[in-house]
Amino acid sequence: MTSSVLTQAQTDEEEVSPGPAIDMRDQVVKGQGSRWSGIVISGFIALYVIFTLIPFFIMLTTALKPAGEALNLPATGDWGGALKKLFVFTPTFEHFSSLFSQNNFSKYLLNSVLAAVGSAVISVVFGTTAAYAISRGRFRGKGDLYFWIISTRMAPVVAVTVPLYAIFKNLGLLNTIPGLVLAYTVFNLPFAIWILKGFFDAVPYDIEEAYMVDGHSRWQALLKIVPLVVPGLAAVLVLCILLAWNDYIFAAVMGGESAKTLPVATQGLKSASGIDWGQIMAAGTVTVAPMLLLGIVIRKYMVQGLTMGAVKQ
């Protein structure tokens, strides 16, 4: 909607509407209303955003504070001291550097990247072909196939881990990156099929037909429409990376030391000889930061992905 339309509607409203010119309905209908309701609403949203962001702020500042300084809170009720404590400190990178120099985090980072990207690529490649076939094909049992695919995505992680653990143990896949890649494919592949089918559904079949009428083969026609879904493919790739990267259970049970990923390593810092919160927060930052960046890049598709395509923005 353009702003001129909005202004137009607004003036019309003012002319015809009886009673108080300003009330709640203007707030909700047109985004403006009495100053007080506006202030209350903005205040509520602002508080909610602060509630959302504070944990991030504390994670980052704790990671940057020198050891000891973070763990020293002001006296109860000393609000001024708290503000000073929160914002005034000399940043240091000691926690970050010790993660990589003493705690092997470069290896865990690499493991995380390999496992997440590996399963994302497999899921997107096989997911694309399957989604295309489901979107374009019409066959008996399609509904059942679709339901089976989606319930695989919804299966509780722990319930899937129990049999996979035993099976992978027999196959020698425990504590290996390929094992983790396969485990992540259990939920990434159905996810990719589900979301990508939505993208293919949005491409009219006419386009392929037109190419085929022009003498192109089916494969050529398929390749011709691929550019139309490339943004979706990229988004699904990123979402698959995100889902696998953030996993804890699979990696904790099946990764062992040799395929340890960042979330497992971060949680592992807790049990090792006392809790160094500065270091855990640094590890948390290392785990979360890449996903925040990726998530913001594909912001448009984020909600669609997280709601299994129920919401299209």
Binding site: I45, Y48, V49, T52, L53, P55, F56, I58, M59, T62, L242, W245, N246, D247, Y248, L262, P263, V264, T266, Q267, K270, W277, I280, M281, G284, T287, V288, M291, L292, L294, G295, I296, R299, M302, V303, L306
Partner: peptide, 22 residues
């Protein structure tokens, strides 16, 4: 606002748990 509110969802749940434990 939507972008800011999306941020927690990108955090690995286990890291979120650790952060809140702290």
């Amino acid at each position: 606002l939507v972008t800011l509110m999306l941020m927690p969802m990108m955090m690995a749940p286990v890291v979120a748990g650790l952060l809140w434990q702290y």
